[in-house]
Design a protein around this nucleic acid. Sequence first.
DNA 1: CCCCCCCC
Length: 606
Amino acid sequence: MANYNLSEGALEVIMRGGEYEHPILQVLAVKKIASGVDKQRFRMLVSDGKNSISFAMLTTQSNDKLTSGDVSEFCVIKCLKFITSIVNNTGKGEQRVLLILELEVIATGEQVGGRIGSPKMLDVATSAQESVQSSSNRPALNGTASTSTTTARIPNQNAQVVTQGTTDISNMPVHPISSLTPYHNKWVIKARVMNKSAIRTWSNSKGEGKLFSMELVDESGEIRCTGFRDAVDKYYDYVQVDKVYYVSKCILKPANKQFCSLKNDYEMTLAAESIIQECTETEASCLPQIKYNFVTFDKIPHAEPNTVVDAIGIVKNIGDLQTFQARSTGRELKKRELLLVDQTNTAVTLTLWGAEAENFQGSNNPVVVAKGVRVSEFGGGKSLSVVSSSNIKINPDIQECYRIRGWYDAEGSNIEANNISAKSGLGSFSAPWMSFKEVTDQGLGNGERGDYYQVMGTILLIRSENAVYKACPTPECNKKVVDLENGMYRCEKCNREFPNFKYRLLASMNVGDWSGNQWVSMFNDEAEKVLGMTAQEVGARIEQEADAMSAIADKAHFKQFIMKCRVKQETFNDETRLKTVCVKVDPVNYEEYNNHLIERIQQLMG
DNA sequence: CCCCCCCC
């Protein structure tokens, strides 16, 4: 059997805290450790041909390799990035474990076909003495380099003992963030505070309180840490963004991806016994500043709505500042939409709110780096929205920023991007063909967010009552105005009176297809297409002749259109019913419609 | 233990 150049003797060096560049190891066994919340962690038995160790862990960054079957029994791997950590949760006293952060598969298990050599199990037990001797003066973790370094540290006589908590934890062995799990609570991490939230209060049926959260980073990974109530008083002012702290004795629990974009399966909570202690050593400077897990825009259509992601893009277009009232709270809201593009030639809308929307300045197509923005879905498109925990930077001094700048200046500015935030239209919006009977039989619209479908519909009857109304003249506001009978019109939404108004259509109509019929609502722009008149023209006709609407509607009766409809549950006066809105009408494209019919006929015939 | 984050 070929020996695949295993790095004989490498494990002895590494497991004593020494350095070894890109060791080549054979995987002898792989085991999922702890199921349930921790299903993404794997323990491996690895060999260098001479020795083997059973405490090698694969961290989440490499797990796609493992689940896809690349890393399997007998395969040979090159460890590109790894660290060691001393743990005390294996039931065998203090032991050093190997954490592989990044690897390359050199030969698959199938190709190798069996164990190489006769490796002997290495004793990985450590004594406090040994860990001190083996540790170097270098930073505890060095994830960017291809070398390993030990995580044990020489106790630093110069370390200042800070008075948060009674125990000095700066002398204890430091663990990488990526090694933390809920199954192990004896650890100390050394991490930089990337970001700290404002203090927020809450009040609900379960009680009330206050909280803040911060994001911690080291060379191995990142984690969110939240403090409630007393912890807010104890640590909020003490902890400062960009500084480095030793942190210990927090409670770990599974992270919720809906609220956090950090790459960690867990997050932690400060408890009464937790310790946070500032690190004043010079070696703190080697810890990373901030970590981004950028998602390219072409992936956003597939992202789960309401999850939180990191994004980077060039500002292609800056929308106007818009002001409106929130329907739910009545509060005045300000927003501004930015259109961002990236190297995948994809454009996405990023919505800024409040002061950030008002004050946004961005000439010369700057780069926007958005950490922790929320994916939202509207009208079949996906967009990004800033939330309170988001962090927006313009042209920050990071490598990705220069890369995207280079792309845009060289070619990106000349290319038409695919806008994934565009609602309906040709973009990503596609609604399945349905008949009204199928819509009813299949119970569409009974879900949370409503369903879209398209139908070849015939207008059977347009209600002439209230089909046109006098609306607020403000461009973004279409609220019906109150005629004050003195030449002025009042908009309750804008809380203003105007000498003028605009006409808007809101048509209710009965639409039929071969299977049945359905009442649908249609807003202004689509109703204008159906009537073949603008709202203004309709309004003017009615001003001349009060009952002109029935004649206008009659002209549209029995016309056929392809209608894209949304059916959704609506609750009004405690009564829930299905409401259908026709969001788009198009002239019948017979070629497309016939193709659909032919397909259905073929389905029927099997 | 929060996790609301708004509108079309």
